[in-house]
Amino acid sequence: MKPFAYTRAETVEAAIAAEGALLAGGTNLLDLMKIGVAAPDRLVDISRLPLAGIEEVAGGLRIGAMARNADIARHPAVLARFPALAEALLSGASPQLRNAATAGGNVMQATRCSYFQDPASSCNRREPGSGCSAIGGQTRNHAVLGWTEGCIATHPSDMCVALAAYDAVVMIEGPGGRREAAMESFHPLPDAAGAGPAPLSPGEVITDIRLPDPGGMARNARYVKLRERTSFAFAIVSAAAALDLRDGRIAAARLALGGVAARPWRCRVAEQALVGQPATTESFARAAELAVQGARPSGDNAAKIELARRIAIRALSLAADGTPDRLAALPASVFAGENNG
């Protein structure tokens, strides 16, 4: 690991002024530093900023950027009103990592593209203009939506997929003041040359994430995640779904896909098509078709399009069945129903 200077920021203002790589839980950044993908000259430790709170605000929720994944997933208001967020969080990483990883760090985590993670490979995201070794390589974890020849990486977060479905807003403070960005468009899509612009400008710090009142969707929300093993693995594809059902008809719907693009993929056309429809498999199948509209393989990964379509149907169907009072033993697993889910 390259040597660096370490400072601790006690206030958000100090973090903005410090000009360095921000260290929160460290579960992603320290790992990238060990493998030589990240090499900051200065680490600014923001883990003690007073931003770890989780509060109910006017029916919605405010999650501080330093709240730990495990604490968010266990929070009574999250379990009661935003259960797909709890399920997404608990389907990711391991208990040890969830105890360290923060909400802000989760939003800012780097892609798990193995070529990005290998300094010997070409990567426009890591080194603009160097090319993309992923194209023509192993592309199981790569994009089928919104990609370019410049970059086919996906964003690996489960949490962000649920947040996008819940209409979450990322609150940011920086040298230019405060701004907010919708979770569903916070992460830039790649352009022809590479990964596109950075989601945060130098000096900017995520302070918290706000979720509006889920209204009638609170108990009809699920997260489903397909992966190579049922625990401690990144998604091949995943989906967060929430429904507001009135007498068996859909008054409002939310659907977002994970593992398919450089951002959580909110499926607004599919959502609109569900409004007024009966909550049936046929309705969900038509919506899922719309959700993957425009998808194309970025390599040997055409199967992900069909998998995403099926996972979208599964997530919508499970959401229609209602969120179970207690989350399944294997969160977000497609096999949960076969065990004791």
């Binding site: 370490y6 601790r8 260290l23 839980g25 460290g26 579960t27 320290l30 790992d31 680490l43 430790d45 883990s47 495990a70 391991s94 208990p95 040890q96 990592l97 105890n99 360290a100």
Partner: peptide, 24 residues
């Protein structure tokens, strides 16, 4: 952070010590 062999309790919570910067 992938194998868990370094698991310790920090303030009572299990954490991977390999991804915990000591100064932090």
């Amino acid at each position: 952070g992938q194998c868990g062999a370094c698991t310790v309790l920090i303030d009572g919570r299990r954490v991977n010590a390999c991804l915990a910067l000591a100064l932090s």
